[in-house]
Computed example of a mutant assay.
Amino acid sequence: MSAVEGKRVIITGASRGIGEAAARLLAEQGAKVVLAARGGEAIKKIAEEIVAAGGEASAFPCDVSSYTAVAALVKHTVDTFGGVDVLVNNAGVIEPIAPLIESDPEEWAKVVDINIKGVYYGMRAAAPEMLKVGGGTIINISSGAAYAPLDGWSQYCTTKAGALMLTRSGHKELGDKGIRVVGLSPGTVATEMQVAIKSSGINPVSKLDFSVHIPAEWVAKTIAFLMGPGGDEYLGSDFSLKTNEGRMAVGFPGLDG
């Protein structure tokens, strides 16, 4: 059995982009996937398409900024598939992009609710269920923004740095209990987030041509890789697709390829 086949996987932010690509790929490889997002109709359609193609999938509308909602998502997964083996904390937002002193405090705080609290809530709700089955894997989608500030991205850089510390804390506290916690820093990905970034015109990332961004399917394949033994040496840290080492480990061309 592969590292993916038969695994019961929760994917947040699954209505599009990385989350959708991951749900489709993991289902193709035999996982039982639960798609979560605020857009209930979108994830319902994707889940139906996965099932029609012979996979196992369920859709559950969820706002990750609410612990009650995330706990209900985990319960739905247990009720539907009998447990939780993998959590992919993918839900995240970057807007509003604005200089710190011009940012809207309430909107800035909403980014914290999703990008940090949402990751914590997922880990807090899923980890006890993983312990019941002897362990599991938690993959937190990270970013290079966790390591360096960028103009207009105070909300994103701060929250991604916080998510990285949750990855480190999770590994420290749960690693010896059988729960593998790892971050995934994909670099720039061709999703709707990049459209918002480009339209902002702020900082060098907004100047990049859309053609340089990697496809969401690459990130999905990397999630599958990290679910297996290939991810073991990166536990408690971020695996990066912005390096030749990372790309070649998953089987992608190097940066110069």
Results as ranks from 00 to 15, higher is better:
N203M: 09
F210M: 15
A220Y: 02
I139R: 01
V205K: 02
G39T: 11
S143F: 01
M227F: 13
L25S: 03
S65H: 06
G175D: 08
G175L: 07
V119I: 15
L184R: 02
V119Q: 02
G39N: 14
Y156V: 00
A37N: 00
P61T: 10
V182A: 01
K45Y: 07
T12F: 01
E102H: 12
S206E: 13
E102Y: 09
K110M: 06
T12C: 04
M193N: 04
G54S: 15
D209S: 15
H213F: 12
A27M: 07
K198H: 12
R124Y: 11
I114S: 01
G246A: 08
K44P: 03
P105N: 06
T80H: 10
V70C: 07
L255F: 09
V219A: 06
S142Q: 08
R8A: 06
E106I: 05
G82V: 10
D256G: 12
N89W: 01
A57S: 15
D209L: 11
T243S: 15
S199G: 11
I214Q: 13
P149M: 07
G183R: 02
V195S: 13
S240W: 08
V84L: 14
S58H: 13
W218A: 10
S2R: 13
S199Y: 12
M1V: 14
F210T: 13
S58A: 11
L184W: 01
E102A: 11
T77I: 08
V205R: 04
I18L: 10
V112T: 10
A249V: 08
T68C: 08
I46F: 07
S237I: 04
A3L: 11
L100F: 14
M123R: 02
E173L: 14
G136T: 09
A220D: 06
T12M: 05
G82F: 07
L26E: 02
A14G: 05
M165S: 10
A53R: 14
D79G: 10
E49P: 04
N244K: 08
K7T: 06
V9Y: 00
L174Y: 06
D256F: 15
A98C: 13
K132H: 11
A161T: 06
N90G: 03
A127W: 05
V119D: 00
D79S: 13
N203I: 09
L235Q: 08
L241F: 02
I114D: 00
D85V: 05
A14W: 00
S169N: 14
E102C: 08
S58R: 11
T80P: 06
A125D: 03
R8F: 04
G136E: 06
G122F: 01
T188M: 14
E233D: 13
A53E: 12
D79C: 11
Y120M: 15
S169R: 11
A224K: 03
P61L: 09
E56I: 14
A145V: 03
V88R: 02
A27Y: 03
I114A: 02
A224T: 07
R124D: 13
K44T: 12
F239M: 05
I214F: 06
V133L: 10
A196G: 11
S199W: 09
I197V: 13
S142G: 14
A3P: 07
G135R: 04
G251N: 14
R38Y: 05
N140R: 07
F210W: 12
I50C: 06
E48A: 15
L235A: 08
V51T: 15
P204T: 15
A57R: 02
S15Y: 01
A52R: 15
